[in-house]
């Protein structure tokens, strides 16, 4: 299944080559998978970002039962997205907005840090089905732009990956609602990815707020071995062991193996 011609030095170069060939299949790299159909990006996923099911169900936009019904009935035919709309659970616009949010979020991490491609599975399709294909060039350009945006806000990338802690006694009044909700999740233990999963928010958008908080002197990478800054805030690394997410991932893996 692995086709050597699709594999270049970087994931971005591989995607460019696959787009030029109008390829269909799944390109996996160290940080996730990008699905192509006729040379366009139709889906992307990464362990660092919440998937569509998590974004929809954790926010309450879709009841978990509704999500599972669509997965059960349409997963094998690769039409889960279509099923969500046809069954009236989600409008076409809402599905497109949420799916594009998840797609560009995952693609950012797949393409960031000069990610290297591992293999291309020609013909592989995602069980979600096609929602709104995006040109490869748009995804690659957007990922680069997002990197620059983070750098402009606060040029210290360790905020993106380290456990994060609040700066004691730093005044945090008058913050915008989103930033304040994210700051509430900073407990000396969780990373940006775990905070995003806990809130059902896209990880890149969480990084933007965390870098703004870092620039404002409110958040720093936690010192190794330091105790959680907020005792009683609870469940360290809840995102990693969340049963919903774990179940969704297992199901996805099983469907992909079909």
């Amino acid at each position: 299944m692995t086709t050597a011609p699709g594999i270049q030095d970087t994931t971005a170069a591989s995607l460019d080559a696959l787009a030029a060939d109008a390829a269909t299949g799944a390109l996996s790299s160290e940080r996730g998978i990008v699905y192509l159909s006729a040379g366009h990006v139709v889906h992307a996923e990464s362990a660092l970002t919440p998937d569509l099911g998590t974004l929809l169900t954790r926010s309450g936009a879709l009841a978990p039962d509704g999500w599972w019904e669509a997965v059960d009935h349409a997963g094998v035919q690769h039409r889960v997205a279509r099923r969500l709309v046809d069954s009236g659970r989600l409008s076409a616009g809402a599905l497109e907005l949420c799916h594009l949010g998840a797609l560009f979020d995952a693609a950012y991490f797949v393409l960031a840090h000069g990610g290297r491609p591992r293999r291309f599975r020609a013909g592989a399709a995602h069980w979600l089905g096609t929602v709104r294909p995006v040109p490869v060039a748009t995804v690659v350009r957007e990922s680069a732009r997002r990197r620059e945006l983070l750098h402009r806000i606060w040029p210290e990338p360790d905020i993106d990956t380290a456990p994060l802690a609040r700066v004691p006694d730093a005044g945090a009044t008058g913050l915008p609602v989103r930033r304040s909700r994210i700051l509430d999740q900073v407990d000396g233990v969780r990373t940006a990815t775990e905070i995003a999963a806990a809130l059902g928010c896209r990880t890149y958008h969480t990084l933007v707020e965390l870098r703004r908080l870092a620039a404002g002197g409110l958040v720093v990478p936690a010192a190794p071995g330091a105790p959680p800054a907020k005792a009683g805030s609870g469940r360290p690394a809840a995102a990693q062991v969340d049963p919903d997410t774990a179940l969704l991932r297992r199901l996805r893996d099983a469907l992909e193996a079909l």
Binding site: S59, L97, C98, G101, R178, L199, G200, H205
Partner: peptide
């Protein structure tokens, strides 16, 4: 601004 139940900022 578009309001959605899920996380979107559009």
């Amino acid at each position: 601004f578009v309001s959605t139940d899920f996380d979107s900022t559009v």
